[in-house]
C-alpha cells in the first residue's frame, strides 16, 4: 500500500463502542481528503466498515489482513 494514513485508530480488542464507531467519530472530526486507518481484531469490521463507507460515499482505499488483525483504510471525500 502506498497511501500514507493521516490518522491511525487502534481499535483492536474493542467490542464497544467498536471500531466502526471510532471511524465515524474520526470522519466527523477530520477534514475532507484525509486518510484514516482503523485497526480491528474483529473480523466483522473488515466487512461492516467498507459497507458503511460505501453508503456514506467515502473512498475505501483497502482492507489489509495483518497477522491477527485487519487494517481498513478510508479517505474522507465529502
Amino acid at each position: 500500500m502506498d497511501v500514507e494514513s493521516d490518522r491511525v485508530i487502534d481499535a483492536r480488542g474493542s467490542y464497544c463502542p467498536g471500531p466502526l464507531m471510532e471511524l465515524i467519530k474520526a470522519i466527523k472530526e477530520e477534514d475532507v481528503g484525509r486518510v484514516i486507518e482503523v485497526w480491528s481484531s474483529d473480523e466483522s469490521s473488515a466487512k461492516d466498515i467498507p459497507e458503511w463507507v460505501k453508503k456514506a460515499g467515502h473512498e475505501l482505499i483497502g482492507v489489509f489482513k495483518e497477522s491477527d488483525y485487519w487494517r481498513i483504510v478510508v479517505r474522507k471525500t465529502k
Partner: peptide, 10 residues
Amino acid sequence: YPTNKIFIMD
C-alpha cells in the same frame, strides 16, 4: 443507530 446493526455487539 450509527452502524449497520441496531447495536454494536452482535
